[in-house]
């Protein structure tokens, strides 16, 4: 079998992976990921505690503007959580955010995987308005490279 061009294209990786060590037990880290008020300490306050199968909404503390939202697609307490995820400028295009919690000496290793991001902005429709004048910006942007 030869490697086909389609497969090469599919394997182009647009996934973001992050990992951070946190000096707290998994249960406490889980609280920071799911409790409405604790989410406000590092992200944005949620309308309600996050629960599997439920939609979530994170709002600006300042004026209540919608900041990030989606659905909690899976939640296995203290180990794993999967969100559909979007932000305002994405015009409703959904991506996937997964959280993995691993026990580590003295705390927790928290890993984030953000997938489903297109290769460029086109698919998000932020540039949808090329006909409304964005092309001017884009040529400016190309000029800066």
């Amino acid at each position: 079998m030869t490697l086909d061009a389609t497969m090469t294209e599919v394997s182009l990786d647009t996934t973001i992976r992050k990992s951070v060590f946190l000096a707290a037990p998994k249960a406490r880290v889980w609280d920071f990921l799911t409790k409405a008020d604790l989410l406000g300490n590092w992200f944005h306050p949620a309308d309600a505690d996050l629960a599997e199968g439920e939609d979530y909404m994170l709002r600006s503390e300042k004026d209540g503007d919608r900041m990030c939202w989606g659905k909690v697609e899976e939640a296995t307490p203290h180990d794993y959580m999967k969100w559909s995820f979007t932000v305002g400028p994405m015009e409703g295009a959904m991506t996937t955010v997964e959280w993995h919690l691993h026990e580590a000496p003295g705390g927790t290793r928290l890993s984030l995987v953000h997938s489903g991001l297109p290769k460029n902005a086109d698919a998000f429709g932020l540039v949808m308005a090329l006909d409304k004048g964005w092309h001017g910006f884009l040529s400016n942007l190309h000029g800066m490279e």
Binding site: F32, F43, L138
Partner: peptide, 22 residues
Amino acid sequence: FEWLSWFDKFWDDRLDALKTAI
């Protein structure tokens, strides 16, 4: 317009904030 680098920094910011909060 460079979504990947945008989110890359976005999550760095958020995870830094989480570390500090915890």
